[in-house]
Each structure stands twice: as C-alpha cells, then as structure tokens.
C-alpha cells in the first residue's frame, strides 16, 4: 500500500528548543491517474442515477438513489479527501458524526410513525 500513500507526517521535533511543535505533512508519490479514474467512476454513477430514475422501481427507487449517492460520497471522501490514507482518528470522528446523524434520523421516524399513524 506504500505506493498509495499521499502524505506522511513527520515530527517537527524542534531542534531549536521548541518542544510543542506539531507534524509536518510530506507528500509521497502524488499522482493524477487515480483521481481521474475516481472522477470517471463518479460521472458513471451519476449517469446511472439519472437512468434508474427513468425506470419505475416504485418504493425501491429512493433506496437505489440513496445507495448510489452513498457510494459516490465514499469515493469522494476516501480518494479526493484522502481519508483512506489519513490518520485513524479522523475516520473515528467522521464515524461518530454519522452515528449521531442516523440515531437522530431514526428517533425522528419513531416520532412520526407513532404519532401520525394513530389517526
């Protein structure tokens, strides 16, 4: 996987007495190719989204559209935003954020189904 590493962090260990220094990002093997491939993938998925919308899938249509959108955003986050190559802590942060979102979404629907379906 070494070839896929975009940036690496090097400790700036403060040779002149600064102990509180952070990490300096250093680029390794930056490449155009992978990103262009991801872009082609994203455009294809967009075309599929539009094509699928023309077919009457009934209740499945929303699920299909959302799954494709999710796949697209995974591509953007992992490759364009380099999360795949990033420090684990950022992945954990994003994971917690998504869990919060999903929990609030589910709780909202508990409220909507129980309150409005009683009528």
């Amino acid at each position: 996987m070494e070839n896929n590493k975009h940036t690496e962090l090097e400790q700036n260990d403060g040779h002149d007495g600064h102990e509180d220094d952070g990490f300096i990002a250093v680029a390794h093997h930056p490449s155009y190719g992978v990103n262009i491939l991801v872009w082609i993938g994203l455009l294809s998925l967009t075309a599929i989204t539009v094509a699928v919308a023309g077919i009457n899938l009934g209740s499945l249509a929303l699920t299909v559209a959302l799954v494709i959108a999710l796949v697209k955003s995974m591509f953007v986050v992992n490759f364009f935003m380099h999360l795949k190559f990033d420090n684990k802590i950022i992945k954990i942060f994003l994971g917690i954020c998504m869990v919060i979102f999903v929990v609030v979404l589910i709780l909202t629907f508990f409220y909507l189904t129980f309150r409005f379906d009683e009528k």
Binding site: L9, N12, G14, H15, D16, H18, D21, G22, F23, I24, A25, D86, N87, I89, I90, F93, L94, C97, M98, I100, F101, V104
Partner: peptide, 25 residues
C-alpha cells in the same frame, strides 16, 4: 525552524466539516 502543525490544521478543519455535515444533516 517552522512553527507549524499540519495535522492539527487538518484535524481542525475536519472538526468544522463535521459541524457542516450535522447542519445539512
């Protein structure tokens, strides 16, 4: 000697992006 912390900078921006995700969320 450069006084900088690239990782801290990136992490700060990511934390901000999470608030953006929850805003649109």
């Amino acid at each position: 000697h450069v006084h900088r912390d690239d990782f801290g900078s990136k992490m700060g921006l990511w934390l901000f992006l999470l608030t953006e995700i929850l805003l649109f969320g």
